[in-house]
């Protein structure tokens, strides 16, 4: 158990180190915070619940329309981007990146991390 938590913390810390990432969190599919890089846990909890809802709603909408499971949800605003990807049936991974960050690299890192998270929780 302790090992899993350590590995999770490492995964989050590594992802946080990727260029442009402001904060990131691992969240359970039903909206509970697993681990985050945010200082204020209470903020992180709301953030977790909202991200899980967003991804869940997007996945429901897309599959209902026969378009399959979406790869990710990207929310863009002038202040930055929020990206949520599924990480297996139990969890998802969310990052907030600064607006000038290129998407290519961060999506790659995020997918890699999501795969690891999925394996970690199996």
């Amino acid at each position: 158990m302790t090992d899993t938590i350590e590995l999770l913390d490492k995964l989050i810390a590594d992802l946080k180190k990727s260029g442009g990432v402001e904060s990131c969190a691992a969240v359970s599919r039903d909206g509970l915070l697993i681990r985050s890089s945010m200082q204020k846990e209470q903020l992180a909890e709301s953030f977790a619940a909202m991200s899980a809802t967003m991804l869940g709603a997007a996945e429901t909408a897309s599959t209902e329309l026969g378009k399959g499971v979406p790869n990710r949800v990207i929310v863009e605003s002038t202040m930055g981007r929020l990206i949520a990807v599924g990480a297996g049936p139990k969890a998802l991974l969310v990052v907030i990146v600064s607006p000038e960050t290129g998407l290519g690299l961060i999506l790659l890192e995020l997918d890699k991390a999501a795969n690891k998270l999925k394996e970690l929780l199996e």
Partner: peptide, 9 residues
């Protein structure tokens, strides 16, 4: 669908 999604655990 959203209710189902969020009510686990």
């Amino acid at each position: 669908p959203i209710i189902k999604l969020l009510s686990g655990e």
